[in-house]
């Protein structure tokens, strides 16, 4: 019998939940197909498909949908509304399945279960699994069991091993994982920095670090990833071993301009070099390269 294939676009929350999703779906007996890494072509397709005012990562997501849609039986695009009781995902992520439906005709069926802790905390997973089960005609209990079993797996990216060194210039990187770890969108910052002799550092802040950062910032951040970005920034500004911080964000992202503002206003950004790199589809690679080089020079205090 031919395998039934479920496609997962390599964009947005993929960079957080990929491993959990993959093992979960495979355990249900399906073959998982993921789209390749973002390329100029994928982004171009995504831009072609977009309607209205979409941010760069969502446009990219559409490009990944395009590259998958004709070779899979289902697309897995869950609707993540909230993953913790006091914060939401960005509105563009909440509406993702709808955006995809609006931008394409002839799509395979979309598996779009809702994950919303704020609605009914104790039954979130049950409800999520029930919706998956309904679309795939499976037993809800089996789906739930498999989801719980696999939900611990995060997205393991090769860059996560980037940590502090004693010798080199350490540059803390903050930003949404789907920008930072998408090598095309994120302009390969990790590699660029290493080539310049600097050491890129990335952290996934713990619950405690997030809570601590939120006490420093009088205004609570209501977006899950925005909270993480702010908390990493806070941790990096405090850490003496971090010589400078680069915040990579999407030029047209509402939540990012909000968190960017908070970081500038509430954290002591003057105590070390801090730079925001805002990327969009027009950002030239040379321009980014020039800024990163100049930033590393600035930390190294290049003088004549």
């Amino acid at each position: 019998m031919k395998n039934i294939r479920v496609g997962i676009p390599r964009a947005l929350l993929y960079y957080r939940y990929a491993d959990a999703w993959k093992t979960f779906i495979e355990e249900l007996g399906y073959e998982v197909i993921t789209s390749p890494e973002t390329t100029a072509g994928i982004l171009k397709d995504g831009i072609k498909k977009s309607v209205g005012d979409l941010c760069l990562p969502v446009k990219t997501f559409l490009g990944h949908v395009e590259s998958l849609k004709d070779s899979v039986d289902f697309l897995f695009i869950p609707r993540y509304i909230s993953v913790e009781h006091d914060a939401y995902m960005c509105p563009k992520i909440l509406g993702l399945p709808d955006v995809v439906r609006a931008c394409f005709t002839n799509l395979p069926r979309i598996i779009d279960p809702m994950f919303n802790i704020k609605k009914d905390k104790d039954n979130t997973i049950t409800e999520f699994s029930r919706q998956v089960a309904r679309i795939l005609s499976l037993e809800p209990e089996a789906v739930e069991k498999s989801f719980i079993k696999n939900s611990g797996a995060g997205y393991m990216n090769e860059q996560e091993e980037y940590s502090l060194t004693d010798k080199k210039i350490n540059v803390g990187l903050i930003g949404r994982p789907y920008l930072l770890f998408d090598r095309y969108l994120g302009k390969n910052l990790f590699r660029t920095l290493s080539e310049l002799g600097a050491n890129p550092v990335y952290i996934q802040p713990s619950e405690n670090e997030i809570t601590e950062a939120m006490t420093v910032i009088p205004k609570w951040v209501y977006w899950s990833m925005g909270k993480e970005v702010t908390a990493s920034a806070h941790a990096f500004f405090k850490d003496d071993k971090i010589d400078g911080i680069i915040n990579i964000c999407s030029a047209t992202c509402g939540p990012d301009s909000f968190t960017g503002d908070l970081i500038r206003k509430r954290l002591n950004t003057r105590n070390k070099p801090y730079m925001t790199l805002s990327v969009d589809e027009h950002a030239s690679d040379t321009g980014i390269q020039t800024r990163v080089e100049a930033f590393v020079d600035m930390i190294g205090k290049v003088i004549v």
Partner: peptide
């Protein structure tokens, strides 16, 4: 004090 402390650049 003779070293760069901040910069911005507009290419777009």
């Amino acid at each position: 004090n003779g070293v760069v402390t901040d910069f911005s650049m507009n290419t777009v």
